[in-house]
């Protein structure tokens, strides 16, 4: 059997790969690790989304940075590798609120995690891609690893171990 290629997906990165591969994103806080994969060919891609909406930004240098630009681009890249839309499924993790709410610190910018979850979910819905598993929200950061072998998303949280979705 071919060894899976380990791929690290940094902030605002967007990567696609044929099977076998493992796609990893370390220390997601308010960011989202979104993986879309073809159930049969096992070709998969991951986006490390930082912000919900590119229209709020001055410029869009990396499409992987925003939910509204990352989802269509990720799908395009997957289609280029010959995936079939009906076989595509999505899993996502992240979108934590890193600091507990307290008085003035409860500023709108700290709800960016929640807005990332909403925007990513909405974009998947608009594209007609089924979200089959997610581990989002809460107040703890996550490291994620997707295996094209098992099609499982391993979600690691500091102090509480790993949860496979």
């Amino acid at each position: 059997m071919k060894q899976p290629i380990p791929i690290h997906v940094g902030m605002a990165d967007l990567v696609v790969s044929k099977h076998p591969a493992t796609l990893t994103a370390l220390g997601l806080g308010s960011c989202i690790g979104l993986v879309i994969f073809d159930q049969l060919s096992r070709t998969a891609g991951m986006a490390h989304i930082m912000l919900p909406d590119s229209s709020e930004a001055h410029k869009v240098s990396r499409p992987g940075k925003f939910a509204d630009t990352a989802v269509p681009l990720l799908l395009d890249e997957l289609y280029k590798l010959g995936t079939v839309k009906a076989q595509l499924r999505a899993k996502m993790a992240g979108g934590a609120r890193m600091f507990p709410v307290s008085g003035k610190a409860d500023h709108a910018i700290f709800s960016v995690g929640n807005r990332n979850i909403e925007a990513t979910t909405r974009m998947l819905g608009a594209a007609g891609i089924r979200l089959v598993a997610s581990d989002t929200g809460g107040s703890k950061g996550r490291s994620v690893e997707f295996s094209t072998e098992t099609l499982k998303f391993a979600v690691k949280i500091l102090g509480t171990g790993t949860n496979e979705i």
Partner: peptide
Amino acid sequence: TPSVARDMLGSIMSL
């Protein structure tokens, strides 16, 4: 009022 988190460096930095 200060707010405290215990977490991965990457998660704090990514926020």
